[in-house]
Amino acid sequence: MAYNKRNDGRKFEEMRPMEAKVGVVKNAAGSAMFRMGKTIAYAAVYGPRELHPKFMQDPKRGKLRCNYNMMAFSGSGDRVRPGPSRRSKEISLVTEKALYPVLDLEEFPKTVVDVFIELLQTDAGTRCAGICAASMALADAGFKMKDLVCAVSAGVVGKTTVVDLDYSEEAWEEGSTDIPIAVMPRTGEVTLLQLDGEVSKEELQKAIAMAKEACKQIYEVQKEALRAKYQEE
């Protein structure tokens, strides 16, 4: 059966409704919330602070340490078990690598900047929502950045290339391919590209192009949220 119409009635290149807010965690140096449909991510930034064990310190620049976590009640109950796991460890690592290229931590040698990403509710695309929230939180904390990072998943459901898959699409019976992509929208450079499933060369190219286009919309939402914090009332 071909996937001609999306389960929630969206167009193929249409994303779920987005919402973003910064400064949601007052205790943190910077924080942000990013919602993509039913997926909700919170990110809080702490530091720069002392890094231990000492051998991990870099005398030339600060380090970035991310921690991705799905809250215990966040899933729909039939997917991965939330909490620390091999999966969350991997996502923490790829998030770090997706964000590090934009971040300038040379002013803070030997330190670490901690980014905690918590998923309140999940409906696929969690690592992308997490990256979007984390890059806003880092900007909110006042770090020097080359650009914001936007992330969205693209993929192939059946034979159809779509952007921003929800859980029903990701778990589509006849197979689907999920490709999370993070980009620096100003230059279009890709900082994260993962692939889970099978895909042809043409489909991959199309998926990346669609995701990059979608990221431009995310970029505007992120920037607007950052500016909104300082809007005069």
Partner: peptide, 8 residues
């Protein structure tokens, strides 16, 4: 004007 990282 309030600007954010990446603004030209």
């Amino acid at each position: 004007k309030v600007v954010v990282p990446g603004d030209v």
